[in-house]
Amino acid sequence: MGMTEKVLIIGSSNTDMVARTEHFPKPGETVLGGTFLMNPGGKGANQAVAAARLGADVRFVARTGPDIFGKQAREGFEKEGIDTDFISQSELASGVALITVDGQGQNEIVVASGANMDFHPHHIPEAVFDGAAWALFQLEIPAATVQWALSQCAARQVRAILNPAPAMPLGPEFLKGLYLITPNETETELMTGVEVNSEEALQQAAKTLFDAGVQNVVITLGSKGIYLASEDFTGIIAAPVVEAVDSTAAGDVFNGALLTALAKGAGLEQACRFACRAAAISVTRMGAQSSAPYQHELEPFDIHV
């Protein structure tokens, strides 16, 4: 395997507070007997940790608050070997996510964004882009900041991947020139107006995104796997069948793993197969970042370049 190229992940960092309970409370209802877990989360941070654990050279750019959550998050990233030089501090509280997971492994999430929404282009110095070959973005920070950073990537020939989550309508300025977009079914429908309930519909949705200027499309289909539309391969890649415990951050692990495989020189199809395996391992475990697998767990499926 060749050199791993440096990857840049710009996005959110949250602390997840997770309560497990048999069923979700109805409005006004109190459900007793849950178990509580607190762990680091946030789409950007989850993707950064997933990539770092799989051997990527990650620079993570984010904003945290002046509180214990921000301090713990930063210490956590350093432990994972992530370059944290460009994580800045806001006066607002660090982001938190309140997550309830029911007996079936489904989740409900309320996010208090805090410092993540106080993240603007002037918090991203030009040096952030130095030496980066790939960049990965999500939408838990202000859309204007993502758009600005995407334009910087385009100007510097950094290949940009957008995971357009959480779902929101995106103008053409987000899509033009993107190397890859990785929406789930809900996000795809919101962006393209196509309900992706068949392979024809998936093709149609991908075509809409191609017409908007995206080079490659991956639509994630949960336990069914992913749909890849690229020059070399178009079709569904099935996910390994596993006993799901907690689907939190499966998409983030997928994106982090995909980025890692690409930075190590894999083609898109191979990178997607690798990422599907990484995501499948993550849903068999509780938590967001804590569920991300390590390189040695995927060794039998090493990326051959």
Rank of each mutant, 00 (worst) to 15 (best):
E185I: 01
I181C: 09
E199V: 09
T182G: 04
L178S: 13
P183N: 13
G171E: 10
E185G: 01
L190Y: 00
P172V: 14
G193R: 06
P169Q: 15
K176R: 15
V194K: 10
E199C: 01
M191F: 00
V196W: 02
G193N: 12
T182D: 06
M191P: 00
V194F: 06
F174Y: 12
I181H: 09
T186H: 03
G193E: 11
N184S: 02
V196Y: 04
L175D: 05
M191T: 00
V196Q: 07
T188P: 05
M168W: 05
L170Y: 07
L170K: 03
T192F: 01
V196C: 14
P172I: 14
V194M: 04
M191Q: 00
T186I: 08
N184Q: 03
L170A: 05
E185H: 02
Y179E: 13
N197A: 05
F174N: 04
G177L: 09
A167N: 02
N184A: 03
E187P: 10
L175G: 10
T182E: 06
I181T: 13
E185S: 02
K176P: 11
T186P: 01
T188R: 09
E195H: 04
S198D: 12
E187K: 08
E195I: 02
K176M: 14
E173D: 14
M168C: 13
L175A: 12
E199G: 00
S198I: 13
P172T: 14
A167G: 07
N184H: 01
N197D: 09
P183D: 14
V194S: 10
N197V: 03
L178E: 13
K176E: 15
P172C: 14
S198Q: 14
T192H: 01
G193Y: 06
V196G: 08
E195W: 00
L175H: 07
E199D: 08
E187F: 06
V196D: 09
N197I: 02
T186Q: 02
Y179N: 03
P169K: 15
I181Y: 10
E195L: 03
P172E: 15
E200D: 12
L175N: 08
N197Q: 06
M168G: 13
T188M: 05
E173H: 09
E187S: 10
L178H: 08
L178Y: 09
T192K: 03
E195N: 03
L180C: 11
K176H: 15
P172W: 12
E173M: 07
Y179P: 02
E185Q: 10
T192D: 00
G177F: 04
K176L: 14
T192V: 01
F174C: 07
N184R: 05
G177M: 08
N197F: 00
L170H: 07
P183S: 12
E189V: 12
T186V: 08
E200K: 11
K176G: 15
V194P: 10
E199S: 03
G177T: 10
N197S: 06
P183Q: 13
I181K: 10
N197E: 05
E195A: 03
P169R: 15
T182S: 11
L190C: 07
N184F: 01
E187M: 09
E185V: 02
